[in-house]
Measured scan of single mutants.
Amino acid sequence: KSAVKALFDYKAQREDELTFTKSAIIQNVEKQDGGWWRGDYGGKKQLWFPSNYVEEMI
């Protein structure tokens, strides 16, 4: 599983989504079709976030 870095702040709209700030590192990313991926951040595990808010880390 990979890690991504947030390009923008994102505030969860639902309880199954992540809230994060710009430059946050989201771990254990599971990529899905449809523009939403799952990952771990801030003590939350495998919640959804919009993939267009992040960049992949190499």
Rank of each mutant, 00 (worst) to 15 (best):
residue 26 I to K: 01
residue 46 Q to W: 04
residue 26 I to G: 00
residue 36 W to Y: 09
residue 40 D to S: 01
residue 51 S to C: 14
residue 19 T to M: 04
residue 46 Q to Y: 08
residue 18 L to R: 00
residue 14 R to P: 05
residue 37 W to C: 05
residue 51 S to E: 09
residue 20 F to G: 02
residue 4 V to S: 05
residue 25 I to F: 07
residue 21 T to A: 12
residue 40 D to G: 00
residue 42 G to C: 13
residue 57 M to D: 10
residue 42 G to K: 08
residue 47 L to W: 04
residue 54 V to Y: 01
residue 34 G to W: 03
residue 31 K to P: 06
residue 25 I to H: 05
residue 32 Q to F: 15
residue 33 D to L: 11
residue 45 K to P: 02
residue 28 N to Y: 06
residue 6 A to W: 00
residue 25 I to T: 05
residue 52 N to W: 13
residue 53 Y to A: 11
residue 38 R to G: 04
residue 35 G to L: 11
residue 49 F to K: 02
residue 44 K to L: 12
residue 11 K to H: 14
residue 46 Q to N: 12
residue 26 I to N: 01
residue 44 K to R: 11
residue 46 Q to H: 09
residue 16 D to W: 10
residue 15 E to T: 10
residue 22 K to L: 06
residue 12 A to R: 02
residue 20 F to M: 04
residue 5 K to C: 14
residue 22 K to S: 09
residue 43 G to I: 07
residue 39 G to R: 00
residue 57 M to F: 14
residue 29 V to Y: 02
residue 36 W to V: 00
residue 26 I to Q: 03
residue 23 S to E: 14
residue 28 N to G: 06
residue 10 Y to R: 03
residue 58 I to S: 14
residue 50 P to I: 00
residue 29 V to I: 08
residue 52 N to A: 14
residue 43 G to Q: 09
residue 2 S to M: 14
residue 5 K to E: 07
residue 40 D to M: 00
residue 21 T to D: 11
residue 46 Q to P: 03
residue 46 Q to S: 09
residue 20 F to L: 05
residue 53 Y to R: 07
residue 6 A to Q: 01
residue 38 R to H: 03
residue 52 N to D: 14
residue 14 R to D: 10
residue 30 E to S: 14
residue 25 I to A: 04
residue 32 Q to C: 15
residue 23 S to C: 15
residue 50 P to A: 01
residue 9 D to P: 09
residue 24 A to D: 08
residue 35 G to N: 09
residue 44 K to P: 02
residue 43 G to H: 08
residue 52 N to S: 15
residue 44 K to W: 08
residue 49 F to V: 02
residue 46 Q to M: 08
residue 45 K to I: 15
residue 38 R to N: 05
residue 9 D to C: 10
residue 7 L to W: 05
residue 34 G to S: 08
residue 23 S to T: 10
residue 56 E to F: 07
residue 57 M to V: 14
residue 49 F to P: 03
residue 27 Q to S: 13
residue 11 K to A: 14
residue 57 M to E: 09
residue 58 I to W: 13
residue 42 G to F: 05
residue 17 E to Y: 03
residue 4 V to W: 09
residue 38 R to Q: 09
residue 55 E to K: 09
residue 37 W to Q: 03
residue 13 Q to M: 12
residue 10 Y to D: 06
residue 38 R to M: 10
residue 18 L to T: 00
residue 56 E to V: 12
residue 43 G to L: 07
residue 43 G to W: 04
residue 40 D to Q: 00
residue 19 T to P: 04
residue 25 I to G: 04
residue 18 L to F: 04
residue 7 L to C: 14
residue 3 A to L: 14
residue 14 R to C: 15
residue 42 G to H: 08
residue 49 F to C: 04
residue 52 N to G: 11
residue 44 K to Q: 13
residue 41 Y to W: 08
residue 4 V to K: 02
residue 6 A to D: 05
residue 56 E to A: 09
residue 54 V to D: 01
residue 41 Y to F: 11
residue 57 M to L: 15
residue 7 L to G: 06
residue 3 A to C: 15
residue 34 G to D: 08
residue 42 G to A: 11
residue 38 R to I: 09
residue 58 I to F: 13
residue 31 K to H: 05
residue 6 A to Y: 00
residue 58 I to Q: 14
residue 40 D to F: 00
residue 20 F to A: 01
residue 20 F to W: 01
residue 34 G to A: 06
residue 14 R to V: 08
residue 29 V to K: 02
residue 40 D to P: 00
residue 33 D to V: 11
residue 3 A to H: 12
residue 5 K to T: 09
residue 14 R to H: 13
residue 1 K to W: 08
residue 11 K to I: 15
residue 30 E to C: 15
residue 10 Y to G: 05
residue 35 G to E: 10
residue 35 G to T: 08
residue 16 D to K: 04
residue 43 G to E: 11
residue 32 Q to L: 15
residue 11 K to G: 09
residue 28 N to C: 10
residue 26 I to F: 04
residue 34 G to L: 06
residue 51 S to G: 07
residue 49 F to G: 01
residue 35 G to P: 11
residue 23 S to G: 15
residue 43 G to V: 07
residue 48 W to G: 04
residue 57 M to Q: 09
residue 21 T to V: 12
residue 36 W to G: 02
residue 12 A to D: 04
residue 34 G to K: 07
residue 38 R to W: 02
residue 55 E to H: 08
residue 13 Q to N: 10
residue 47 L to K: 11
residue 11 K to E: 15
residue 32 Q to H: 15
residue 7 L to S: 08
residue 16 D to S: 09
residue 24 A to M: 06
residue 24 A to H: 05
residue 24 A to Y: 00
residue 17 E to P: 00
residue 26 I to R: 02
residue 34 G to C: 11
residue 50 P to F: 01
residue 3 A to R: 14
residue 17 E to V: 00
residue 2 S to E: 10
residue 3 A to V: 15
residue 6 A to M: 02
residue 52 N to I: 11
residue 45 K to C: 13
residue 53 Y to D: 02
residue 41 Y to L: 10
residue 1 K to Q: 13
residue 16 D to P: 01
residue 14 R to G: 12
residue 6 A to P: 06
residue 36 W to T: 00
residue 47 L to H: 14
residue 10 Y to H: 06
residue 8 F to T: 09
residue 10 Y to P: 06
residue 9 D to A: 08
residue 32 Q to D: 11
residue 33 D to A: 13
residue 58 I to G: 13
residue 47 L to R: 09
residue 48 W to R: 11
residue 41 Y to P: 02
residue 19 T to K: 02
residue 2 S to I: 15
residue 8 F to L: 13
residue 15 E to I: 11
residue 15 E to K: 12
residue 39 G to V: 02
residue 11 K to N: 15
residue 37 W to R: 00
residue 14 R to L: 08
residue 42 G to V: 04
residue 7 L to I: 14
residue 29 V to Q: 01
residue 18 L to Y: 02
residue 41 Y to Q: 03
residue 37 W to T: 03
residue 47 L to C: 15
residue 52 N to V: 10
residue 26 I to Y: 00
residue 15 E to M: 10
residue 53 Y to L: 15
residue 54 V to L: 03
residue 11 K to M: 15
residue 53 Y to F: 12
residue 9 D to I: 00
residue 19 T to L: 03
residue 24 A to S: 13
residue 22 K to W: 03
residue 21 T to N: 12
residue 39 G to L: 00
residue 44 K to S: 12
residue 50 P to T: 00
residue 27 Q to R: 15
residue 47 L to V: 05
residue 15 E to R: 08
residue 21 T to G: 11
residue 57 M to W: 13
residue 27 Q to G: 09
residue 54 V to P: 01
residue 58 I to E: 14
residue 54 V to K: 01
residue 37 W to E: 03
residue 42 G to L: 09
residue 30 E to W: 11
residue 51 S to N: 07
residue 13 Q to H: 09
residue 58 I to P: 14
residue 49 F to M: 01
residue 48 W to Y: 10
residue 45 K to W: 08
residue 4 V to Y: 13
residue 37 W to G: 03
residue 44 K to E: 10
residue 41 Y to T: 05
residue 39 G to W: 00
residue 4 V to F: 11
residue 55 E to L: 08
residue 12 A to P: 05
residue 56 E to N: 08
